[in-house]
């Protein structure tokens, strides 16, 4: 899981981190290699130091500083040995990064296969292999490998999210939704996953031929509501809420009667929301989005998301002005 965590830094952060790498490496050259730790003289080595190295490695690779990355990986190998699972995963990552062409990548893939044949429980390498399959654009193979991995460890959130993305790229919406639901079973209050599930539901509605699948749309809207409930200034949540409620309003201009009928279903499905509620939600989302786009930069929202939100707002206000 932690392999990808530092990939969530923004580009500029990664760059600035990697620029500090030479300094950092020089500063810590002595502590990393001391043979016997002497109390008082050398600080006891901490887990943080090595986590730092790992993060440094990842940001160096991202910034294209392969030399510094090589130093980091050497340090890690010196400390933990080349047979450590996590180190094997990181080393694979480095090799993939410096590989020149597809043939080199193929060799690395073969290496991974050998490692996995020897030790099938080596999760970091298994994950690297899947990522490599993806970057070789062998998506179906990657999906197969992922399902195999998930069969033996069905509580791995990272793998489930990855699989859902892969399914989504193949437009297999029910499967993608299933995967995201699995993620929610492990982390039920992850608002970003709730919003993501809403997005996938929404995409599945928009891409299907029948234009008005009210149930799925309502479900998507509710997912966004839940994500807002969990994190009440989540831009993506409001954005999705606005999109879905807009669509619901245009597809079902007045369904107050129908809502009353469906209300009595007792097979556990939720009734359609009434038009009044949807309208209210839409207004709330619009006002909140407007508010957010106003003082965004100070609060560290993703720039692209803010621009998208502004665009959405402009689009929805234009017809009214005319």
């Amino acid at each position: 899981m932690s392999l990808s965590s530092s990939l969530r830094h923004s580009n500029s952060e990664a760059l600035s981190l990697s620029q500090q790498s030479t300094q950092y490496l020089q500063k810590h050259t002595s502590t990393g290699t001391s043979t016997i730790p002497v109390p008082f003289i050398s600080y006891p080595e901490s887990t943080e130091l090595w986590l730092m190295y790992e993060k440094l490695l990842l940001s160096c690779l991202r910034a294209g500083d392969d030399k510094a990355a090589h130093l980091c990986i050497e340090k890690l190998i010196d400390r933990f040995g080349a047979t450590n699972e996590r180190i094997m995963g990181l080393r694979g990552l480095y090799q993939e990064a410096v590989a020149k062409d597809d043939a080199a990548l193929g060799r690395i893939l073969k290496e991974y296969d050998e490692v996995l044949a020897e030790d099938p429980v080596n999760t970091p390498v298994a994950k690297r292999r899947i990522a490599l399959l993806q970057s070789l654009s062998r998506t179906t193979d990657a999906i197969d490998a992922l399902t195999e991995l998930l069969e033996s460890s069905p509580t791995d959130i990272e793998a489930w999210t990855e699989l859902s993305d892969l399914y989504l790229s193949q437009s297999l919406f029910p499967q993608a939704i299933f995967c995201l639901e699995e993620v929610l079973l492990v982390a039920p209050s992850a608002w970003n996953i709730h919003a993501r599930l809403g997005e996938v539901l929404y995409i599945s509605v928009t891409s299907s031929n029948e234009s008005a699948d009210g149930k799925t749309l309502a479900e998507a809207m509710r997912r966004f509501c839940r994500s807002i409930e969990l994190c009440d200034d989540y831009l993506r949540g409001y954005y999705g809420l606005k999109m879905t409620s807009d669509r619901l309003l245009s597809a079902f201009p007045d369904n107050s009667k129908a809502a009353g009928q469906i209300l009595s279903t007792d097979n556990g499905e939720l009734p359609m929301p009434s038009t009044a509620t949807v309208r209210k939600l839409n207004e709330k989302a619009t006002s909140k989005l407007a508010e957010m786009t106003r003082w965004t930069t100070a609060r560290g929202y993703n720039y692209a998301e803010v621009v998208a939100a502004k665009e959405l707002l402009d689009k929805s206000t234009q017809p009214k002005q005319r």
């Binding site: 099938p120 069969e151 460890s153 069905p154 639901e181 079973l185 556990g268 939720l270």
Partner: peptide
């Protein structure tokens, strides 16, 4: 190190426990 079947046994049980504790996050059909 755990062998693959042992790992699977544990994780699948954990899967069930997760489902039991966090069932409210998914719809009743799922």
């Amino acid at each position: 190190k755990l062998t693959l079947p042992a790992l699977r046994e544990q994780r699948q049980l954990l899967h069930g426990i997760n489902l039991r504790t966090n069932y409210s996050a998914i719809s009743s059909a799922s």
